[in-house]
């Protein structure tokens, strides 16, 4: 895959929750095979941007293209990794059980997982180094291992665009380093990574590109050029606590 090609394209995208504008007139390009940190304060629109790429967000204006397609038609290419705290770690399920879920969308309702599916699952377990933990219940893992289970599910899903919602939240230093390492490897393999990130230092270390949001686009491009003192000041200067609360209310309809 050539890296000068754009894989995700925003053309003046606007998203509103009722009267509240979550994203305002965003235009940006994500190059194929890049790793991009989506940055900004609470309520800046990081999650909204991810949801928009997944095709869950009806747009008040503009359009989003994944390759040549509308997000809804690009689902097989999109592999989503949820936030850690959104997961019920007490659920009666093993590591392999979670990773197999990545294959569910590819298997018909009445069919069973085939040989190819099992091979993909085994491959994903191997790649993330958790093959020996396959039969463990997911609570009985370290934080870093838990994170890798969901990365493996995304790999087993077989997409080439990975969307991660705050993947570094709740990880200790070692696990965060490890995750950064995995994401850099993915980039080298030509996978496109898009992750909402809170921590600017982590973003600098683990991603090559950045998108800085303040409901509007503050900057996008190579991470070093995005995270300048001037840009950071622009993005984080305003108190947006009120916004953040209202946004959370608008998303409360979500299960759990």
């Amino acid at each position: 895959m050539s890296s000068d090609q754009n894989i995700v394209l925003f053309r003046s995208v606007t998203v509103r929750y009722g009267r509240l504008t979550a994203l305002r007139d965003i235009s940006l390009e994500i190059p194929c095979g890049s790793s991009t940190a989506i940055l900004g304060g609470n309520g800046a629109g990081k999650s909204t941007l991810l949801r928009a790429v997944l095709g869950w967000q009806s747009l008040a204006g503009g359009e989003i293209r994944i390759g040549d397609a509308h997000p809804r038609h690009a689902r097989p290419r999109l592999s989503y990794v949820p936030q850690r705290h959104a997961v019920d770690w007490d659920f009666p399920i093993t590591v392999r059980g979670v990773v197999e879920q990545g294959r569910y969308p590819h298997v018909g309702v009445f069919a069973r997982l085939g040989l190819d599916d099992r091979r993909m699952v085994d491959g994903a377990l191997e790649e993330l180094g958790i093959a020996d933990l396959a039969d463990r219940q997911i609570r009985r893992l370290s934080g870093g291992q838990q994170q890798r289970v969901f990365l493996a599910r995304a790999v087993a899903h077989g997409g080439d665009i990975f969307l991660l919602d705050e993947p570094f939240a709740g990880l200790d230093l070692f696990a965060a380093e490890e995750l950064g390492h995995i994401l850099r490897e993915w980039e080298e393999q030509g996978r496109t990574v898009l992750a909402a990130v809170h921590d600017l230092d982590i973003a600098r270390r683990s991603f090559t590109r950045g998108v800085l949001l303040d409901t509007t686009l503050v900057a996008s491009g190579p991470i070093g050029e995005v995270l300048t003192a001037a840009n950071i000041d622009r993005a984080y200067r305003h108190g947006r606590c009120v916004h953040a609360e209202a946004l959370r209310g608008a998303q409360a309809g979500e299960p759990r």
Binding site: W56, R75, Y80, P82, A86, V98, Q101, Y104, P105, H157
Partner: peptide, 14 residues
Amino acid sequence: LLETFDPVFHRATG
């Protein structure tokens, strides 16, 4: 199983 365990992923995969 998917809707019970991870409704968000269920939705992400259609």
